[in-house]
Simulated assay, not measured.
Amino acid sequence: MPPPHSSAPPPPRPAARPFRPRAAAAMEPAPRFSFGVIADVQYADAEDGHDFWGRRRRYYRHSLRLLRAAVEAWAAERPPPAFVLQLGDCIDGVNARSGAAEAEAALGRVLAALGRLRVPVHHAWGNHELYNFGRARLAQSGLRSRPPPGPGPPAAPPGDCHAYHFCPAPRFRFVLLDGYELSPLGRDADSPRRRAALRLLREKNRNADLNNPAGLEEPQFVEFNGGFSRAQLDWFNDVLRFSDENQEKVVVMGHLPIHPDASDEVCLAWNYRDALSVIHSHQCVVCVLAGHQHDGGYCLDSHGVHHLTLEGVIETPPESNAFGTIYVYDDKMVLKGRGRISDRVMCF
């Protein structure tokens, strides 16, 4: 995604040794489980480029090397993470300029790198995946990570929405949202869903370039963002109601941030307020994880929900990195960041 208007990225932090929580020394229980997080790899077999405004360097080839380094680090952890969240934009839109074969090759290299892990990888779909492929192709690719249905509410919303939930441990549920279900991206030119998304976008954005937020009252209404359908939000509400009733803690994830204090306004989901309204009508959500804004962001909202936006790999210098492991306890999540991503304790 085009990043916010900001200065050059901060200098890299020194490389950290693999984190192994020592519960005995801290006199607290061991973590229930851990999982890896990474966002905005945006790999392409191309020379370095720049962001939408020509201000920030993008390391297209090095991003794959950094992904491979993250995989090696996760594989070396003891115990290893139970799964990894890839928060979208794993390949860059520049691949599409060279044709479908180049896009398929780039995706194949990213999936091969992640395939070295012996744990599940859950994939959000971002705008850059949709620059390269239609939704039908993504649904048949290695980026369709939906697990088999289990007990509880419906596993997914109706239609081609790439949203689902899963339980990695008792009393913990993860919900993946599809922030581009409402979007012209990835849909056929004559698709009614595409036409409806374009009508909404043009009502909110009268600029000739629909990726230009200049002068907008709601600057999130640009084409590189998207939104959630009413059907998806109703399904999301049902999942959270089930989690409330069963005293579960819920982590929400997706490509697009949904809180303005954890993101530049330009990078928010179109109808982020609707998603927040669903979350705040329940007690179970403890954290929302997102990518899209390459500088990252964080806030603890007025309802006690942590919103963490991960820094993007694509704008990370080759000598650094941008990934992390989150250790989950009964009352908190502890992020051990690598490179540009800072350590963080999120209590709930």
Rank of each mutant, 00 (worst) to 15 (best):
A8N: 11
A16Y: 06
P18H: 08
F19S: 01
A30W: 14
P31A: 07
R32T: 09
R32A: 12
V37R: 10
A39Q: 00
A44V: 05
G49Y: 06
H50L: 08
D51Q: 06
V71R: 12
E72T: 05
A73Y: 11
A73E: 13
E77F: 02
P80S: 13
G88H: 08
S98M: 08
A113M: 05
L117E: 11
V121I: 11
H128W: 14
G134R: 08
G134I: 07
R135P: 06
A139I: 06
A139N: 13
S145P: 06
P148D: 05
G152A: 12
D160E: 07
C167A: 14
L176V: 02
D178S: 05
S183V: 05
L198I: 13
E203Y: 04
N205A: 10
E223M: 09
F224V: 10
F228W: 10
A231S: 14
Q232P: 06
Q232D: 03
V239K: 05
V239Y: 05
S243Y: 02
D244K: 02
E248K: 10
V250I: 09
P257M: 14
W270D: 02
N271Y: 09
N271C: 07
V286M: 13
V286H: 15
C287T: 07
G296N: 03
D301V: 14
T316A: 04
S320I: 04
K332P: 08
M333I: 03
R344C: 06
